[in-house]
């Protein structure tokens, strides 16, 4: 599949603090990629570089084959951008925002926008500044869907949305993206939402990417194991084991290895384990398993 977004060898520092070095990833056409990471791992930095609002120390991002810092109007027309905080113009009403943006996008879907706005039960003449935080978020999302872009970049899309609307939006977006073969790049603090929405996940930790793979594959392969172990100190630093933690003789760790493979590996390293249990994980649990609780 042709990549819509390509980030090549991205390196960025804030002062002397390295955010990441040689970050590489691609977003293939028609896929929904979720960027997951703890606070401060560089999610918003990556989104800013992608949008052309931050120049990386080295490396480059291409969107539709063009450098993200110098996108042509035609390329910008194909990209729907949701800025963190659902930023929009508070001095405009719902109708004015619709009229304003419709002039820029030839595929503008007025109906889709007002369909979503009707759910809000807000007067079309109401200004954004007079709306609640959640309502503003819904307007910002509605505008992006009406734009009907080929690529949607949604930074922390679930912020400020109540649970019901969050679920509705996730389902709406998922259906919209799949039926229209849209490419979506999304970040969110609420990983349960991501699990319902994304095809692929890109998990970041301090300094770079831990993994990029389809969510289905991650949830199929990545397991949590609990066991009792007499010498837990030997577990530290073993390749393939993620963040082993032992409390009162009960050890918990995660791995991409299946149960038989893990037992075999521990046996080779002469680590005896008892009460061995294998658990399947949700995306949120897998994320914590990969990045650690702290």
């Amino acid at each position: 599949m042709e990549p819509i977004v390509e980030c090549k060898n991205l390196t960025h520092y804030y002062g002397k603090r390295c955010i990441y070095e040689n970050l590489n990833f691609e977003i293939p056409k028609g896929r929904i990629l979720g960027l997951l990471g703890k606070n401060g791992t560089g999610k918003t930095t990556t989104i800013n570089i992608l949008n052309g609002y931050l120049k990386p120390k080295s490396g480059e991002c291409l969107m539709f084959g063009e450098k993200s810092t110098r996108l042509s109007p035609a390329a910008k027309q194909k990209i729907g951008l949701l800025i963190e905080g659902h930023v929009q113009y508070p001095f405009m009403t719902i109708s004015e925002l619709e009229r304003y943006y419709s002039a820029f996008y030839p595929k503008w879907k007025k109906g889709a926008y007002f369909e979503l706005m009707n759910l809000l039960k807000i007067d079309r003449k109401q200004k954004l500044s007079q709306m609640s935080c959640g309502q503003k978020s819904q307007v910002a999302l509605g505008l992006i869907l009406a734009q009907d872009p080929e690529l949607l970049i949604l930074d922390d899309f679930s912020m400020g949305l109540d649970p019901g609307y969050r679920m509705l939006f996730v389902d709406y977006l998922s259906e919209y993206a799949k039926s229209g073969n849209k490419t979506v790049f999304v970040t969110s603090h609420i990983i349960q939402d991501m699990e319902r929405l994304i095809d692929d996940c890109l998990i970041m930790d301090y300094g770079g990417i831990i993994l990029q793979m389809p969510v289905g594959e991650l949830l199929e392969k990545f397991r949590r194991y609990r066991f009792k172990c007499d010498s837990p100190e030997l577990l530290t630093g073993i390749d393939g084991l993620y963040h082993p933690v032992t409390i009162k003789g009960n050890t918990e760790t995660c791995s991409m290895l299946d149960a038989a493979g893990l037992k075999e590996m521990l046996k080779e390293k002469k680590i005896e384990v008892t009460s061995f249990r294998e658990e399947k994980l949700t995306l949120e649990e897998a994320f914590i398993g990969l990045t650690g609780k702290y």
Partner: peptide
């Protein structure tokens, strides 16, 4: 000032114009 609050100018610069 309204463009710089919440960095709304990002929206303006993202419009499909040079």
């Amino acid at each position: 000032v309204p463009e710089m609050v919440q960095k709304r100018i990002k929206l303006t610069l993202h419009l499909p114009l040079k």
